[in-house]
Design a protein around this nucleic acid. Structure first.
Lengths: 221, 221
DNA sequence: AGCAAAACTTGCGTGCACGCAAGTTTGCGT
DNA sequence: ACGCAAACTTGCGTGCACGCAAGTTTTGCT
């Protein structure tokens, strides 16, 4: 199912998409993001500017996609491939942390560039939402496909937690709250991810142990 | 703290914001959303078009804001005002459901309009993210302000769950998943919200009880 | 094979978001 | 009371997102 034969059409689309995001990143690195016009990206990828916009709805999205492109599916795969003995919570946390722990050297300067420019930062942080669909599938698979709804909510919550972690990580941290000096000055990304996901563990555990029946359980008014 | 004296400046800003969103909604209802130019909204609110864009970053946002404007703060307030005997989970769920259960008659046709147009639907659904900041404060308050991080993650997760619920509610429901015919055909919004929030209850409970069971992880920065 | 529908690309036009650099208003310290 | 600094508004210019309606390629059906 993950390896569909894929029609010719679909493969062309993926090729175009990849060409676009790679061109976007390459040009952004070469010239600086502000000196890259959409037309340049389109030209470099060999399509019309209009077509570019059929694939990405903003320049930032294309650049960021070069870095985040395959994380979504990798996370889902990692959750699915996790030893069955371990809990769902561990599977999810490890999958996320692993996939966000960048083994990729090329991504270094790209991430530096991204975290520098506000517009790119935002696009990068927002890209966390893209893990929701594949993660929904992976979680639903583990819970027994009956409960799609719960899986969706959990996946979206995980994405939200990742969003929070990325936000904290990519921020110079505005000093607008002088209340307590005990704010963590943004540690390493893996640590931030773990601590952001920690509060969701009980929800993941509960979903796993509780999975027998009715989706809408107790309603106390 | 909720009733700041508020400087003159701040009040003017809020007035302008309100004028803009009300103008946007009124014009959209009168003429249909496609026949409303940004310039029209700005003119109706008595500001320049450029200023309009200092308040809202898209036309859809302004229209939707007329409906969603105060929900954020009301939800936070409702969580804070909840009887201390009840659990955090109940407080949050009830606050959300109550505030999304629309007692407002005026909003009826507005919501009809919004759910009709795809662009507006998306803006409406995305507006759920706006509850995160005030909800973070409210939850942090209940948890004892020490753990801001946890509160933030929980609030973001709640927002994500609301997002899922709104999505399901506002969708004609694409028939792209022919798997099981047992998908709920989108019930009433309160029911959708309750069932979307249900999976998060364990997480909220655990956070409240200070020491969750045994999340084997012991992060200490 | 051959053809018709469906999917994708492309050019064009329109309205828009947003950076920038004045000009104007509010707030605050002395 | 005065004036300076910070915040906000506004006009302008630029690049862009996206609807629309051809034109082109892929696919599925007979």
């Amino acid at each position: 199912m993950t390896t569909e034969p894929a029609g010719l059409r679909e493969r062309k689309k993926q090729a175009t998409r990849q060409a676009l995001r790679e061109a976007a990143l390459r040009l952004a690195l070469e010239r600086g993001p502000d000196n890259v016009r959409v037309d340049d990206i389109a030209e470099a990828a060999g399509v019309s500017p209009r077509t570019y916009n059929n694939y990405f709805s903003s320049r930032e999205q294309a650049i960021v996609a070069a870095v985040t492109a395959e994380r979504e599916s990798r996370i889902a795969a990692a959750v699915g491939a996790h030893p069955v003995g371990t809990g769902l919570a561990d599977a999810v946390v490890e999958a996320v942390v692993t996939q966000y722990t960048d083994p990729d050297e090329d991504a270094r300067d790209a991430l530096l560039l991204i975290t520098t420019r506000p517009a790119l930062r935002e696009a990068f942080v927002d890209s966390a939402a893209a893990i929701t669909p594949p993660l929904t599938a992976a979680i639903a698979d583990r819970l027994g496909a009956a409960d799609d709804h719960t899986a969706h909510v959990l996946a979206a919550s995980v994405a939200a937690a990742v969003h929070v972690a990325l936000e904290r990580w990519a921020r110079p941290v505005g000093a607008s709250s002088p209340a307590s000096g005990l704010v963590v000055p943004s540690g390493s990304l893996p640590d931030l991810l773990r601590s952001a996901l920690a509060p969701l563990r009980p929800a993941l555990d509960a979903a796993e142990n509780h999975r027998p029946q009715a989706p809408e359980e107790d309603r106390r008014t």
